[in-house]
């Protein structure tokens, strides 16, 4: 069996959810190739464990639309039994379109591989797990990054093939991107995440969360309520429809704990909830709880730590 893993990259490097996708591919096939859109760190990528061949390009394929991606992939993936990608927004955009063009039904966001055709995926915001068996002749999967151990960045010795550039389609054109830049660790790979909710109260107050996070080198997250209220930008949202995270430590501050939020963080190793409402549902899932006013508790902790 042959797999192609279409990786997502951060600053040229294969990101953690993509390394987890390679790990899932390993459970399905002995032969794993990668498609790498940005070749800038290709020499590092070549060392990733278990990879046979890397397909890449002379230059970074920038801001590729789902339309262009699918146009390119529909022939490129022909020889593969599995097409695998992480569950980032880039992959979620083109993978279903690819499925439709090939008359295949992709399985999204898998968290477990039972055998070559059978997978677990969360439904109802992770409140149930569906075990599904694919009857498609070619299986297209997206992988939930937190559910698989990433493969090592070393130990491999992949060969490299350079492809001609992906042709852009005319119907869709990239205009601009507003990147929220931050020196803090990335949500998807952070060991500790400090998350703020509606209880934080304002954009200005969010600095309390930021100071705490910076003191301990944590990433920042947020509940939907905090994002909707404009305290912080959309890409920090943790939850059913935002990012799914599973750090060693997740500290939920001023977050009541709607099921949609819990869906994005309940696999964290240790969960701490700090909330002034002792009946907040977040305490039902937390390992440790502290009832108190975040405006005194958080500065206290930040100072004492």
């Amino acid at each position: 069996m042959k797999s192609i893993v279409i990786v997502e990259q951060d600053n040229g490097l294969v990101n953690r959810p993509s390394l987890a996708a390679i790990s899932a591919a390993k459970k399905l096939s002995s032969n794993i190739d990668l498609l790498v859109l940005d070749p800038s760190e290709i020499n590092t990528i070549k060392n990733i464990a278990f990879v046979d061949c890397i397909y890449s390009f002379k230059e970074k394929q920038k801001d590729v639309s789902a339309e262009s991606m699918v146009n390119f992939l529909k022939d490129f993936i022909e020889k593969y039994d599995y097409v695998i990608a992480p569950s980032g927004t880039f992959s979620k955009n083109f993978i279903p379109r690819l499925g439709a063009v090939l008359n295949l039904q992709p399985v999204s966001d898998i968290i477990k591989v039972h055998n070559e055709t059978t997978f677990d995926r969360p439904i109802y915001a992770g409140n149930a797990i569906a075990t599904v068996k694919s009857k498609d002749k070619k299986i297209i999967l997206t992988i939930r990054g937190t559910a698989f151990q990433p493969v090592d960045l070393k130990g491999g010795d992949a060969s490299l093939k350079i492809l001609s550039d992906i042709q852009e389609v005319n119907s869709s054109k990239f205009i601009s991107k507003e990147v929220s830049s931050s020196e803090r660790p990335d949500l998807a790979s952070a060991k500790i995440i400090i998350s703020g909710g509606r209880g934080v109260g304002s954009k200005e107050n969010f600095t309390i969360i930021e100071k705490f996070a910076d003191k301990i080198g944590a990433a920042i997250g947020a509940s939907r309520a905090a994002v909707d209220a404009g305290y912080i930008s959309n890409d920090y949202q943790v939850g059913q429809t935002g990012k799914v995270v599973a750090p060693e430590l997740y500290i939920a501050i001023g977050i009541s704990g709607a099921i949609q939020h819990l869906a994005g963080m309940k696999d964290s190793k240790v969960i701490v909830a700090i909330n002034k409402d002792e009946d907040a549902p977040i305490f039902q899932i937390a390992d440790y709880g502290l009832v108190g006013d975040l405006f005194t508790v958080i500065p206290d902790i930040t100072k004492a730590i």
Partner: peptide, 10 residues
């Protein structure tokens, strides 16, 4: 709404 921020396409 994409990973990393906002993207505008035409």
């Amino acid at each position: 709404e994409v990973d990393g921020g906002l993207e505008t396409i035409k």
